[in-house]
Design a protein around this nucleic acid. Structure first.
Lengths: 132, 132
DNA sequence: ATGGGTGCAAAGTGTTTGCAAGTAT
DNA sequence: ATACTTGCAAACACTTTGCACCCAT
């Protein structure tokens, strides 16, 4: 395995993820960071996000469309607004026993499961109602 | 709303999804169909898959990477092999009550949730063991 | 000094779209 | 006849990569 280095850019990217409570996409992160670091490159942000996720320092949420990044390391589910795209953590506990059940039923070796609830967030419900 | 037409191409695409028990990506479907229909275009396959999914005639599985299509209309979870990419239906029941719980906790209006279990399928477990 | 890291731009992957011609209704 | 659909290619969104230079170790 490669010996990782502690570059300014990698620190910047890591802190950016740890420092925010939303679940930004790589590009959102890049655009925000570039405001402060004008010659930070998109490739570097994407590369470091992948490296940090592989090293389990952050979590990568594989969504359709753009992947999101998350500072919470314990497994947990998510809730996504299909109207505005906002993403939240689920308050329900992650059910690890489901993984074991699937293993028994299917012979798979399960690492984890990903659950995303989809619907309208309170803000969008309000917004859509006031439009009619 | 648009008045849909019943074209040969749309039928071909619909039957292709209904007729197979795997969960093909749009591109897999296109490549397979083009063997029989040399001037079927990629755009037409993608367009029709989206139209059919909107019309609830098939289901669209939003996975990271390429979306998959599914003939089973009732909500159900999936199991994906992270090694070979194979995708299977979960034998566990879909828990609709979770959606209600999330609504109570968060004020969201939930339509559905998507759960994908990730791990190694029995074939890949065997394959990987015999390599060492 | 050396090998991982960076910036940049080009290429890759999966998907959508504008347009002129074709066809189901 | 109307307007939805098609094939095609170009465009798009998101991400990865090749390369020459740079810098943490």
């Amino acid at each position: 395995m490669k010996q990782l280095r502690n570059t300014k850019q990698r620190q910047t990217v890591l802190n950016a993820v740890l420092g925010r409570k939303d679940h930004p996409t790589a590009d959102r992160l890049y655009l925000d960071l570039r405001a402060e670091n004008p010659n930070l490159s998109r490739g570097t942000v994407y590369r470091n996000l992948n490296i940090l996720a592989e090293g389990k320092e952050i979590k990568q949420l594989k969504t359709s469309g753009a992947d999101r990044f998350d500072w919470r390391l314990e497994p947990h589910d998510h809730i996504m607004c299909t109207n505005c795209g906002a993403l939240f953590d689920s308050p329900l506990p992650y059910k690890e026993e489901l993984d074991n059940l699937i293993e028994e039923y299917t012979g798979f070796k399960i690492n984890l499961h990903r659950t995303v609830f989809e619907g309208l967030c309170p803000d969008c419900i309000r917004r859509l109602q006031s439009q009619d």
